[in-house]
Design a protein around this nucleic acid. Structure first.
Lengths: 349, 349
DNA sequence: CACCCCGATTGAAACGTGTCAATAACTTTC
DNA sequence: GAAAGTTATTGACACGTTTCAATCGGGGTG
């Protein structure tokens, strides 16, 4: 005997419920969607039938009919990155309140996977999407809106307003906050450790950092050195320590500003392995304020992004775009905040 | 002028493609689903029409017709937990190879949300699901299979084989590995810091830990003390340090075994804040081997779970269940591995 | 009592796809 | 060149839902 019992009872549809309650399918549909239009007595009868037959609505039917499904996609760059998972929580909570289902899709930082996911959303006739694009090329998304699925870009402030909505954090301000903090501590030689400059966010952080030095009357070209890495993960950060220290103790920077906490944590580990102490021998600043920034020792000074709020705002924006008849694209900008912990200290030559 | 251009061109269907290519809709369907049945020439003609009209299939139509959708759900306990996100990667990669779309749903450790998500899967007529259940009560899942959606339980080895498939890691062996390690280092007083014992996994780890002491000829009741917490997160771990140290230096345990890395990292922080050094004053062992276990200082000794492999195996199992005509539920068990880092050391009274 | 009105319900049509039996076109064989 | 066989294509229908114009029934009004 097989252990599957699925075919025992065929899944029931709206018509069977209707027959069972002695009404027409249309009435059942009304009970489900606009209960106020149906008389108390019949409503109760239908609800009883629904319960008795254990009817569960078939969303394929609905969305076939309406042309749209009631779910929104959330395209994240990387499911394993804590930054994105916090954002996901925000999106989910807000969506739940609007009665929308969230399907989380992972682009794994790969353009080709993003494209596949966008296509999937189009095939499912998703109502909308919250997207963190893998790079500056938004043509996939433009195509998506032509297919009738609206979207909101997340963490990408440079989206033109005639293309789509966006919610992001002021990266220039973030870089500047970090820079001012380091300048205030007396640092004069800083390395900016970053991912590819093709990513707009890190470019802006870099500019902000330089602006802080300029503001203090220092020459940013002399003060800020850049080390560019292909990926923003801890292993890369650890390996990059060699490059940071290259040139011997003479030219060693006094502080490292990392484009991301993962990178910063890797750097801290790499420094420790080489016998350098943080912050005595070198200060380290991260970006994002992931949970673990507070767990390492010393705690990581970092630029905090309002991750959860970011997610909520994006979803709220999307929701209003879905409901407004005439929508004008909007741009929402959050301001990040520096969180000072133990990984930065006054520079003592 | 509105900035939305969506209604510019109605989304095209299979019939319009057919007309454009001068064939019947059925032929277009064949081109999409069984291209070998259609003659080369017509196939090319249809493909040209598809490209020209930028046709994208409507999955609502397909799944309405077939009764099942081509996507599988992945129900995780907590999107923010690195353990689950690694598993998610495994599931996604395997699913991509089988041509299945993965929708990731978050139960947020809440029974009520799990229920909502299960219902959502039923409404979408999902082909299957990989589920990490919130607790021992699997009635939601039994209901789900009655609705025709098969599932594989993840990380829950006690699922009866007549109920469903499961893929899990041997928690008893994991607890035992940690225990043997601590015994070997000479520890005689260990605290097991854990989440609710209602969770089967942590019960088994506890048993394994005790078994290791028993094996060494020691009395587990005397050697192992249990501190139970409501949740398994870093903040809880940090706060629990008070309980661990309660009773003064005399009765202080020599080591702490945590049911989870997050907890262990919190404990390490809490200990550091109280001026206790790891591993000199106390050894700490975690469970999971998340990325960050290797980034803190000292590195966290922990029981590694094959997270990615776990996800892949679960998805593979689900896929075979979906394709086999006669399926017999299966149970797959992985063995965890102890990773020794700097957080544990020989006990020196 | 005829009329109208109004709320509640119905019936039919449509959404886009997949299936399958039936047909058409074409090839081979004698 | 006709019959038999093979391959390619068609046409119609079903899936479950929603919508909307049409209908029904009952109560109030003139």
């Amino acid at each position: 005997m097989s252990s599957r019992s699925r075919s025992a009872r065929r899944v029931v549809g709206i018509t069977e419920v209707a027959r069972h309650a002695g009404v027409s399918p249309g009435t059942v549909s009304n009970v489900l969607n606009r209960p106020e239009r149906v008389a108390e007595a019949t409503r109760l009868r239908v609800e009883a039938a629904i319960a008795e037959l254990d009817y569960v609505r078939n969303s394929s039917g609905s969305s076939l009919r309406s042309g749209r499904s009631a779910s929104v996609g959330l395209l994240v760059l990387d499911v394993t990155n804590p930054f994105f998972t916090e954002v996901a929580r925000g999106v989910e909570d807000e969506a739940a309140e609007s009665g929308l289902a969230v399907v989380l899709l992972n682009s794994a930082e790969a353009r080709e996977r993003q494209q596949r996911n966008v296509r999937l959303l189009a095939e499912q006739r998703a109502a909308g999407a919250v997207v963190m694009p893998v790079d500056d090329d938004l043509s996939d998304l433009v195509w998506l809106s032509r297919q009738g699925t609206s979207w909101v870009a997340l963490d990408r402030g440079d989206v033109a307003e005639d293309v789509g909505c966006s919610v992001s954090v002021d990266n220039h301000a973030g870089g500047m906050a970090a820079g001012r903090h380091l300048v205030g501590l007396g640092h004069e030689q800083v390395t900016f450790l970053t991912g590819p400059f093709a990513i707009e966010q890190v470019r802006r952080r870099h500019e902000g950092l330089r602006a802080a030095f300029e503001e203090a009357g220092m020459d940013p070209d002399a003060a800020v050195r850049v080390v560019e890495l292909p990926l923003l993960n801890p292993a890369q950060g650890e390996r990059a320590v060699d490059k940071i220290l290259a040139g011997g103790p003479r030219q060693r920077p006094q502080a490292v500003f990392c484009a991301n906490d993962q990178l910063a944590l890797g750097v801290m580990k790499g420094l420790g392995r080489r016998g350098l102490r943080v912050p005595d021998d070198m200060s380290v600043v991260g970006y994002d304020n992931v949970d673990l920034a507070d767990l390492v020792h010393p705690g990581l000074t970092t630029v905090a992004q309002p991750k959860y709020a970011l997610g909520r705002a994006a979803m709220r924006l999307l929701d209003s775009e879905l409901n407004e008849a005439e929508h004008v694209h909007e741009r929402v900008l959050f301001t990040p905040e520096l969180v000072v912990r133990g990984s930065t200290a006054v520079y003592r030559p």
